[in-house]
């Protein structure tokens, strides 16, 4: 059932021209950043070569590129999550799901995995572009892998927040702005807190991504993402149940 709902979500996304437009523009932006990073690296490479232990292409190109993608996704994910439940409410298609033999978990997980699969398609070009560098240089596969895992977990946490905010309203635009406000708020609180041990750092997904970005697989960061995602998914399930209770 979860797969059925996820596939329906994907099918609806890909049948809208706006999705294809967004895909094309974002591929262009990712490629632009990649090429800009590559050019900067090639320019300073002769000077780097004189260092005793010069940073490689992966650290100089891949890590900043993933970091940029993480920031971009923070702003993009709300635009994709806004439709998930708010639009079903507005078009009154939610009744189809609510009157079907499904539990709230099916509905929420179906939508979550459907959009996550779409975002995987959207971001798959980043590791592919980076792997094209393997033609000319040695890549640090460990660093790439940790970045890919980190970006995936980060995206999942963004989608969970967006899905929850989308369940709160029947206006997709409000859902988009609300989710953006939450995500940007967490990020701003993180970079605004100067004390190194401030609690704001602990609740910011982007902060937990930094270790992955540096190639460090820390189980506490992974646990944070899983918990963060699970909490928002559970909140969404309970919100969906409440719409049966309160109408």
């Amino acid at each position: 059932m979860i797969r059925l709902l996820a596939l329906r979500e994907l099918r609806s996304l890909f049948s809208m021209p706006s999705t294809w437009f967004a895909l094309a523009v974002l591929q262009f932006i990712f490629a632009w950043f990649f090429l800009a990073r590559l050019e900067a690296f090639l320019e300073i490479q002769p000077q780097l070569a004189q260092l005793a232990n010069p940073p490689g292409a992966t650290v100089s190109i891949a890590a900043p590129l993933f970091n940029t993608a993480a920031l971009l996704l923070m702003m993009l994910v709300p635009m994709f999550t806004m439709r998930l439940i708010a639009e079903e409410r507005r078009n009154q298609t939610l009744a189809l799901l609510l009157s079907a033999p499904l539990s709230g978990y099916h509905i929420v997980l179906g939508k979550f995995f459907g959009l996550l699969a779409f975002l995987l398609v959207l971001t798959i070009s980043i590791p592919l572009m980076l792997y094209s560098l393997a033609l000319g240089t040695q890549l640090d596969h460990g660093l790439l892998l940790s970045n890919v895992i980190g970006l995936l977990l980060l995206t999942a946490s963004y989608v969970a927040v967006g899905l929850y905010v989308s369940a709160l309203t029947s206006q997709p635009v409000i859902a988009a702005i609300g989710a953006l406000a939450v995500l940007a708020g967490l990020w701003l609180a993180d970079i605004g807190a100067t004390a190194a041990d401030s609690a704001w750092h602990l609740i910011s997904p982007l902060n937990h991504f930094q270790n992955f970005n540096a190639g460090l697989l820390d189980s506490s960061d992974a646990a944070f993402f899983l918990l963060f995602t699970a909490v928002f998914l559970l909140l969404t399930v309970s919100r969906l149940h409440n719409s049966r209770v309160y109408g």
Partner: peptide, 11 residues
């Protein structure tokens, strides 16, 4: 069938 048919208009 609710008052407004629950149709996914893009399918």
């Amino acid at each position: 069938l609710p008052e407004t048919p629950p149709l996914y208009r893009e399918l």
